[in-house]
Design a protein around this nucleic acid. Structure first.
Lengths: 123, 123
DNA sequence: GCTTGACCTAAAGTGCACTCTAACAAGTAG
DNA sequence: CTACTTGTTAGAGTGCACTTTAGGTCAAGC
């Protein structure tokens, strides 16, 4: 089962076991042979974890979030606060990346101009 | 002088020497005491390097780019190609981060709803 | 003349986030 | 029965990008 979840989620088998060990994933049920048998919704959770990772939330905060989630409703305020902080950070980051995209486009345009000028002078 | 560049660029003194060692920065002139004396335009270059770093270009490709830049105009086509590749990657990344921003906003909205529902039921 | 502080080098160390290894068990196909 | 696949564990190893250490030099101020 872990291989299937790995394939569907895009995380390596090793990574899933590692995530479980550090508390990012709940302890799954085991089949009679001791193998991990996951709920279907593990994929939704992994997809969300992947997003948190992608925008740069460090693993210790992902673990913190996962542990609060496991504790239930009493942690909702804290979870909201944590996500809000990262939401602001992400918004700023997107703004800065968008600026960078413009800088790259300008650079590329300049390279094209230089190339054109060279062709022109060679003629 | 390195301290001044560090302060203005936001990179640590140690990092500047490290960047020089791996070829991200040109060998600067030295004063009679052997200290680095930078051109003003080093700050422009560092700002650009910072952008390349921020959006995730690995250091080896930053080094590659820096080396091509030092070789002059004959590398313009290759430099354009390198930047173009990362430009596409960056555009995709921004799109995905923007999606994640929406997911975070939805989550936060749901947390607020849960909180409101609790207040309501307590009343 | 001595202290302070910024600078120098080469090399070792750090933290993050995995990633792999070794050695083993159990179920499945031929 | 044997080979193959997929799984299990604890713990060591990896790659990236710095970051710190150790052991110095040098110029300016008191």
């Amino acid at each position: 089962m872990i291989g299937e979840v790995a394939e569907k989620s895009g995380f390596a088998v090793h990574t899933l076991r590692y995530y479980e060990k550090i508390g990012l994933l709940p302890q799954p049920d085991r089949d009679p042979g001791g193998r991990r048998s996951y709920d279907r919704d593990i994929l939704v959770w992994l997809e969300f974890l992947g997003r948190l990772k992608d925008f740069g939330m460090p693993i210790r905060d992902r673990v913190l979030y996962a542990k609060m989630r496991a504790e239930g409703d009493q942690t909702i305020t804290a979870r909201r606060a944590l996500l809000s902080t990262y939401r602001e950070e992400l918004a700023n980051h997107i703004a800065s990346l968008t600026e960078t995209l413009g800088v790259l486009d300008d650079k590329i345009a300049i390279y094209d101009q230089v190339a054109t000028a060279k062709n022109g002078s060679r003629k």
